[in-house]
Simulated assay, not measured.
Amino acid sequence: MQRSRCLTCGYAEVACVCAWVQPMQVPVSVVILQDAQERKCAKSTVPLLQLALPQLEVVAADDDLTVAELKARVQQAPEQWGLVYPTADSQPVEGLAANKDVTRPTAWLLPDGTWKKTRRLLHEHPWLTKITAYSFSQAPVSNYRIRKVPSPSACSTLESVAWVLQQVHHVDPSPLHELQRHFVARWQAYQPDAHQR
């Protein structure tokens, strides 16, 4: 039998998080390039971000038109963008907060999917490598305990956005963390045998 879904947040009614949504306005653009399979994942944190950040933009990686439009925007002013992804030459995002002389990105792009899928996204879209990449040298302990991850230090997409906003733009990420905390708790209560770290 198909689960009833909340018409507002889109999650199953037993996992509805509407009571904990606190919409936030942030001073930068945040764009998610989402793998097609990730869009169907019930554990994805991108829907949480869409609820909390009204200006968030989600680009489906299998939508050639919107990907082309995003590519054109990036190539028009690559210096304004930051790619949140650990690469061989990525810079610590924490360094942007410490160095006031460095120009900070006004738009952040985050690939969304499993580690294998996001690596493929970068391979399929080499224009992404033209953006300065940033990674986390002091990532907080993740509370995203309902999905298998490649390492204990891995963060969900929501946690990654929250860390960037906090470290670089001094935005209080508490509403985002609170929203994910309740989402994880409701998921674990509904499916107690689901994967946990």
Rank of each mutant, 00 (worst) to 15 (best):
S29E: 14
V30R: 06
V30C: 14
V31W: 15
V31I: 15
I32S: 00
L33Y: 05
L33E: 02
Q34S: 13
Q34G: 10
E38M: 01
R39G: 00
R39P: 02
K40Y: 01
K40S: 03
K40H: 07
C41K: 15
C41W: 14
A42N: 04
A42Q: 11
K43L: 14
K43S: 04
K43I: 08
S44D: 00
S44V: 02
V46S: 07
L48M: 01
L48Q: 02
L48F: 00
L49H: 09
Q50L: 06
Q50N: 06
Q50H: 03
L51I: 04
L51T: 02
A52Y: 06
L53D: 13
L53R: 05
L53V: 14
L53P: 10
P54N: 13
P54Q: 11
Q55I: 06
L56P: 08
E57W: 14
E57V: 15
E57L: 14
E57Y: 11
V58N: 01
V59C: 00
V59F: 01
V59D: 01
A61P: 15
A61Q: 12
D62E: 13
D62H: 14
D62K: 08
D62I: 06
D63I: 04
D63F: 03
L65W: 11
T66I: 14
T66N: 06
V67R: 02
E69P: 01
L70W: 09
K71Y: 07
R73V: 01
V74D: 09
Q76E: 12
Q76M: 02
A77C: 12
A77M: 08
A77P: 07
P78S: 04
P78D: 08
E79M: 03
E79K: 10
Q80W: 00
Q80L: 08
Q80S: 08
W81D: 14
G82S: 09
L83Q: 07
L83T: 03
Y85W: 11
T87M: 09
A88W: 05
A88M: 06
D89V: 06
D89E: 10
D89S: 13
P92A: 09
V93H: 07
V93I: 11
E94S: 09
E94N: 05
E94W: 09
G95A: 04
G95E: 08
G95P: 01
G95T: 06
L96Y: 11
L96I: 09
A97H: 15
A98T: 13
